[in-house]
């Protein structure tokens, strides 16, 4: 596990960018991304076009792996272990079992211990995070609401996870069993959180980051790195915005740098009000 989560350690204070092609991947790498995430369509397009969203085609994944020197991640549908087996064979560095794609299994997530390649999974609360870790996830990302350019859900999920972590650290040993029941999570992992004051694996943030200030906000709320999906390639000037988000993530607690890098980026992606959404992606996963 420390080899698997070790790569996540190397990605901290960095930005992982969604890409659908080798060309996007090169733009992301040029802008300073620490990794790219291959998927068939960015979340904003999945939302607009509907239909079943699946893993990226192998030839696209291959061309992205060949195009960049940084780690390549790719998304699979929840529970779709065959897609994961294919991505592992293609030599991706991390697999995201993601609610952004259409779920393949309505009860089971992938048994991630069966793989050598590490997995990242989304979570909206601490119980969900610990269930994913019990299945073998080596990194957790708060889900947010992908494809909206609206940070409110990411903030809700991060605050829920970090708030419960703080509360657990002051629970006594008898209360930990109750926490395990309420969280529907293994008591051993609950105890590990209580002792360490943190998740046993790195906690990143995803879903709704559109401007540099969003990245700073979630880093200040306890995220250790940031995933950006539609926010980059649905904006006016992907290259400049990507670089600005990278600088903002690294310097998230330095307002003078944030003010400087937030200038001259053109229009951000148009945002969506979460209340008006037909599909809430974050509700997928169990």
């Amino acid at each position: 596990m420390r080899v698997k989560s070790g790569l996540a350690e190397m990605l901290k204070r960095g930005v992982i960018m969604d890409v659908v092609s080798a060309e996007h991947a090169r733009i992301a790498e040029d802008a300073g991304a620490v990794a790219v995430m291959a998927l068939e369509r960015v979340p904003a397009d999945i939302r607009r076009d509907g239909g079943v969203a699946r893993m990226s085609p192998p030839e696209t994944v291959q061309s992205i792996v060949e195009a960049v020197t940084i780690p390549v991640m790719a998304k699979v549908r929840i529970g779709h272990f065959a897609e994961a087996q294919i991505l592992e064979a293609l030599g991706v560095d991390y697999i995201d079992e993601s609610e952004v794609l259409t779920p393949a299994d309505e009860a089971h997530h992938i048994d991630k211990w069966q793989f050598t390649v590490p997995f990242v999974c989304g979570a909206t609360n601490l119980g969900e995070a610990l269930r994913r870790i019990s299945e073998g996830a080596a990194m957790i990302r708060s889900k947010g609401e992908a494809g909206t350019g609206n940070i409110v859900e990411a903030v809700r999920h991060l605050r829920s996870i970090t708030g419960d972590i703080r509360r657990i650290t002051v629970a006594d040993s008898a209360e930990l069993y109750d926490w395990a029941k309420r969280l529907q999570a293994p008591v051993a992992l609950v105890r590990e959180v209580a002792e360490g004051g943190r998740l046993p694996v790195p906690l990143f943030c995803a879903g709704g980051v559109a401007i540099p200030a969003d990245a700073s906000l979630v880093m200040q709320l306890g995220a250790e790195a940031v995933f950006v999906g539609s926010g980059i390639f649905k904006s006016d000037n992907p290259s400049a915005r990507a670089k600005a988000v990278v600088e903002a993530t690294s310097n998230f607690d330095d307002p003078a740098i944030l003010a400087k890098v937030s200038r001259g980026l053109g229009e951000a992606m148009p945002g969506l009000e979460v209340g008006g959404l037909e599909t809430r992606l974050a509700e997928r996963g169990w």
Binding site: L11, G14, V34
Partner: peptide, 15 residues
């Protein structure tokens, strides 16, 4: 430290 050398290079420049 370890990390992505390309990203760290860019940030050394930027900072």
């Amino acid at each position: 430290p370890g990390g992505e050398s390309t990203t760290i290079s860019m940030l050394l420049e930027a900072n």
